[in-house]
Amino acid sequence: MRIEVDGLRVAYDGRTVVAGVNLLAAPGEITGLIGPNGSGKSSVLRTVYRHLRPAAGRVLLDGTDLAALAPARAARHVAALPQERGGDFELTVREVVAMGRTPYKRAFAGEDEKDRRIVADALERVGMTRYGGRRFSALSGGERQRVLLARTLAQDPDVLVLDEPTNHLDVRHQVELLALLRAQHRTTLVSLHDLNAAASVCDRLHVLHAGEVVASGTPLEVLTPHLLAEVFGVRAAVIEHPLTGDPLIAFDHTATAAETPS
């Protein structure tokens, strides 16, 4: 399914933080949002998974306004992994993942065999099968992140919305998570701080700066030395990754863009 953000404006306490954003997440592709802190990435994502109501504009799912859908129906289509991870659930890991099946259940309905199979598969895909009986509150930050990702997978959505999903993960699990997203072939909208991760996993990037989209395109089209200097304030070269052929950003840690003569 396709996600379109059409003329989106978001404001907090009268201050506009997202100003007229238009972007597209194409069916089956991974679409990345990148930009400095405060550029509006999380605010855009929160409107997509309906945590925020925009001041103007719409979020369309295959042409249907998501705001017009009942919550349970919307949750069958769109699953989110937000930055706000919630409290320390006094539940087991398996029980947390099983919460992803809630949009498909009637009130007080129990699990069936399909639910149990989907939950087990989601735990396996994030490498947390042997943790199923542990308390969620006893896990490390990285382990919790993987469990919450499993919960979104158990929701079996058409669209995944992920806000900084690699936070708290060590290098190995970052690589595994990005590979897992690629293997899903599911429409995915993700914000990432790590520009090299974005270059490796995303089919398309939208660059936000001061609440506006300032560039869109493939990683190779978008991640240029000029854009990195203008938007992120860094001096960098963009080369070809020797293993994957993706764009690879080599940062100059001796000077910022502002300190470098033009």
Rank of each mutant, 00 (worst) to 15 (best):
E111H: 14
A257P: 12
L227W: 07
A11S: 15
V59M: 10
R134N: 06
V171K: 00
H241M: 06
L169I: 08
F108Q: 07
G28W: 01
E164Y: 10
L139K: 10
V96A: 03
A67Y: 11
L123V: 07
L61S: 04
A210Q: 13
S42P: 06
R85T: 15
P27E: 11
E113I: 03
L23G: 03
A154I: 02
L181F: 05
Q145P: 12
Y49P: 08
V147I: 14
R46L: 05
M1D: 08
L189N: 04
A210Y: 00
Q155C: 02
T31R: 01
V93L: 05
G142R: 04
G7A: 12
E176I: 00
G35R: 02
E230G: 08
R172Q: 13
V44P: 09
L8V: 09
L148Y: 07
R53D: 11
D65N: 13
S43T: 14
D121Q: 12
L81P: 07
D88C: 01
E240M: 00
A55H: 12
Y49N: 10
A199V: 09
H185Q: 15
A26I: 00
D6W: 00
G217F: 04
L192C: 13
L169H: 05
L243R: 13
D6Q: 15
V147S: 01
R116W: 00
G57V: 12
V175Q: 13
L61Y: 14
L248D: 08
I3H: 04
R204W: 11
S216V: 04
